[in-house]
Design a protein around this nucleic acid. Structure first.
Lengths: 144, 144
DNA sequence: TATTGTTATACTCTATAACTATA
DNA sequence: TATAGTTATAGAGTATAACAATA
């Protein structure tokens, strides 16, 4: 059932379809109060890696700089990040999590993954392990 | 390294971030000539399941009926599907692959996954197996 | 009345091109 | 000149609301 998908070409299509379908489903399941995905991933990136420039965030998330400018501004208006100028290179901007941003990550995490968490709880440990491994692999591939 | 992601809650976040990042990356890698993802997945669904109504396609892909109407019309204008009225229930529409649509699937598959296929070829068999398993699991979860 | 699908309209997220400020 | 970021504008894909046709 799975062995015939181990050729790289076929597998690529399977992965692409699965990822796109999941993203659409997650959007449909997301509650009104939840932060949109592209905002939330920036908060988690800042928590994981510390303060970053908009350019670095754009590269990490595979979007163009103007898109990240809008994302960062939206987070700033919500009070979840703070933009400060770099002293040494005044072209650069430092984007930093605020206390409210950190709190938002923690509160949101519990709420927003409710549907997917429930689905995952129905799986056996082997399936969960496969998903954990796959997540790591895909994040690495997508971030190159 | 992976065992700490096997709690359903944490894992949900990992999967969500990975899926969204991959979708963005695939969009960035996609060539000009390639069919957009939401059009392509409908062609593959019709190939796999045979002729379907727009409503069934919308449910399968987790989009709303008006969105699927636009998708099906775009495919119809490209000559890849044909819409015919149901004889017995004249409200319903039957969406069917054309020969050109079938050819498009085959031609496109080879082209469009080039980048991801190349990345997957660098992986070992265990990683590929994990991705194959994960794709199946995620498609099932997202399709419910 | 309920169901299937469409049209009209608007929102979200992204991109490219052009611009400003700094190095 | 080159780089970091922003502003202006447009395109793609989705949604909700209102509508038409049929059951």
């Amino acid at each position: 059932m799975q062995s015939n998908q181990c050729q790289p070409g076929t597998l690529a299509g399977e992965i692409r379809v699965a990822a796109n379908r999941l993203v659409r489903r997650l959007r449909a399941e997301r509650g009104e109060a939840d932060l949109p995905e592209h905002l939330f991933v920036v908060l988690t990136a800042l928590k994981k890696f510390g303060p970053m420039t908009p350019g670095a965030l754009a590269e990490l998330e595979s979007v163009r700089p103007p898109s990240m400018t809008r994302t960062v501004n939206a987070l700033s208006e919500l009070g979840f990040v703070e933009k400060t100028g770099d002293e040494r290179d005044k072209r650069q901007v430092r984007v930093e999590l605020t206390d409210r941003g950190i709190a938002e990550i923690n509160e949101t995490r519990r709420r927003r993954d409710a549907w997917l968490t429930k689905e995952l709880s129905k799986l056996g440990p082997e399936d969960r392990q496969a998903l954990a491994s796959a997540s790591e692999i895909l994040k690495t591939i997508a971030g190159q």
